[in-house]
Design a protein around this nucleic acid. Structure first.
Length: 156
DNA sequence: GCCAACGTTGGC
DNA sequence: GCCAACGTTGGC
């Protein structure tokens, strides 16, 4: 029995790493996630080939800018062991790493950015389980249902 | 740059 | 185990 392909939304600040950066490098280790819920999604939920909505956050027009896919299983985020990295975690050990990441591969840019405003306008249809539009949401990696994926991409 | 939301830390 | 202090996220 084959597991159905799952879908995710992953946020990135375009000033740091944008969809154009991903297009250039093709595949990127998604380092720096330091939230347990987001880590658990990467560790327990993601499979190679899963679909990713690439979301630009903390920018003038936040929204979904492109499509990507999961390109690896979860493995330890090397930046947690690097004392010089902003993502260094002195409490994590190589024997028992606290933080994991997955590789994310470029698929395509959207023809246009699907803005957060537009997404909010469809909040009723997306449903209460859509974490992006839930109040106070700060999760940088979150699950998307097949129905939500379809609805969002139909807005392109 | 402001600030609300909220996860994490650490004293007790 | 509680909870105040603190730090970070991310929209605006």
């Amino acid at each position: 029995m084959t597991a159905r392909r799952r879908y995710w939304l992953m946020k990135s600040e375009p000033d740091t790493f944008s969809i154009d950066d991903l297009e250039r490098v093709r595949t990127e280790p998604w380092n720096g996630v330091r939230n347990y819920q987001a880590r658990n999604y990467m560790r327990d939920g993601m499979k190679v080939g899963d679909g990713v909505l690439f979301y630009h956050s903390n920018t003038a027009v936040p929204g979904i800018a492109g499509l990507a896919s999961i390109a690896s299983a979860a493995y330890p985020d090397p930046t947690q062991f690097d004392a010089k990295s902003d993502y260094h975690d002195p409490k994590s050990t190589r024997e028992d790493p606290r933080w994991l990441l997955v590789d994310v591969a470029f698929d395509r840019k959207l023809k246009r950015v699907i803005t957060l405003d537009e997404i909010k306008a469809r909040a009723d249809e997306l449903g209460e389980d859509f974490a992006l539009t839930r109040r106070g949401n700060r999760l940088s990696v979150l699950p998307v249902t097949a129905a939500q994926w379809k609805l969002l991409l139909a807005m392109e």
